[in-house]
């Protein structure tokens, strides 16, 4: 990102960075102790024109989506799509196999006995929904097994709320951001350089 951190308010959280290439990035990292303090700080900093790179927290903080301007996920649409695929595949499979490819008379019932296809159709709908949605989730979020994971602050998965603001090459905005973080209740402010982040 070439633009300095403090600009006019624009799109705040960008998702592209999770898969971005290996280069060094500099961050001002504010550590917060409490979720209410965190949410007020995000509001105030955004109002001051700070572009927040990301927030890392040990648990999902309620209201952070609104505070950061994260849009509602479209994963439910993907889930519905995969469910439809599962249902059509299951119906096609059963009708093709028992109705057309190798019709068998079973207990004198019709070859295409739809009521007895309901259980398998339902199960495959659920199976495709679950796996399709999870694979989509892992792919778009860049979540995959990795031998080493770079984290800004290891306490973000324990008890601290970590706000990252990306800095330019010379970190010129650091002192300004430190003050802003402190004024908004951050318990510490760190300067981090990350590669492959």
């Amino acid at each position: 990102m070439n633009s300095p951190a403090v600009t006019s308010a624009g799109p705040v959280v960008q998702d592209t960075h999770h898969t971005s290439a290996s280069r060094t990035k500099r961050f001002a990292v504010g550590i917060f102790e409490d979720e209410d303090v965190l949410l007020h700080a995000i509001d105030n900093m955004r109002a001051a024109g700070v572009r927040i790179y990301d927030v890392f927290s040990p648990y999902p903080v309620h209201g952070i989506d609104d505070a950061l301007g994260i849009e509602r996920s479209r994963l439910p649409i993907a889930a519905f799509f995969f469910g439809c695929c599962g249902l059509s595949f299951a119906l096609w499979m059963q009708i093709y196999m028992l109705g057309f490819d190798w019709p068998m008379i079973i207990g004198g019932k019709p070859n295409i006995a739809l009521p007895s296809f309901i259980p398998v159709s339902f199960e495959l709908t659920v199976l495709f929904t679950a796996f399709g949605m999870m694979i989509t989730f892992f792919t778009i979020s860049g979540l995959y097994p990795k031998p080493t994971v770079n984290v800004l602050d290891a306490r973000a998965t324990d008890d601290k709320f970590v706000v990252a603001v990306e800095l330019d090459e010379s970190s010129s905005q650091l002192s300004k951001l430190t003050t802003l973080f402190r004024d908004n209740g951050a318990s510490e402010v760190n300067h981090k350089e990350m590669t492959n982040f």
């Binding site: 994260i70 892992f138 984290v151």
Partner: peptide, 20 residues
């Protein structure tokens, strides 16, 4: 690290995680 699937607790990830 392998088991945690590169999870860092990002706000965007949490949002999706809750939906999922």
């Amino acid at each position: 690290s392998m088991l945690s699937f590169n999870w860092r607790g990002s706000a965007k990830h949490w949002s999706r995680y809750e939906t999922v």
